[in-house]
Amino acid sequence: DTLPERFGPGAFGFGRPAEPAQVATLDIDVRPDGTGLPAGSGTVATGAVIFAAKCSACHGAGGTGGPNGALVITDATPGKRPAKVIGNYWPYATTVFDYIRRAMPFNEPGSLTNDEVYALTAFLLHRNKLIDEKTVMNAKTVPAVRMPAQASYVPDDRTGGPEIR
């Protein structure tokens, strides 16, 4: 970093202030504590219908597998490790909402309403045995879902140097 100290905040004056309304259209991320979750809600039952129509071609009936992989815990094939899916590998339920909203369906990303994303989140969390079929998903309930994998997550423990980790 070789810039002289005088190049502090705003020193160059390039760029224009980001208007809150503009930021809001881009600011779609959702955090583990639920920050960023929009208004709206969805049920497991609605999610099942949408999933069958828009998702199962790629992820199999009910998310059990397909050309683009399983999304739910399935019975382990003998001798094979269980697939890493939401129910056994994802640490936060908020990520399910965030990812579906930004990236799915793969061929029509950004095409779902928030209610549809809540419904699909409900459906996939239920199929992963994380919520019962009556729990409605919304900005309050999604971050409250307890995810079994969360306890397993550790930050990088490699530090350089001779030790192989």
Binding site: L26, D27, D29, V30, R31, P32, K84, I86, Y89, W90, P91, Y92, T94, T95, D98, Y99, A103, Y153
Partner: peptide, 17 residues
């Protein structure tokens, strides 16, 4: 397209799944 500064990681799908 966007950089948002925060006080904790987001745990996006690409850093969990």
């Amino acid at each position: 397209r966007r950089i948002e500064l925060g006080d904790a990681p987001w745990h996006t799908r690409e850093e969990t799944s």
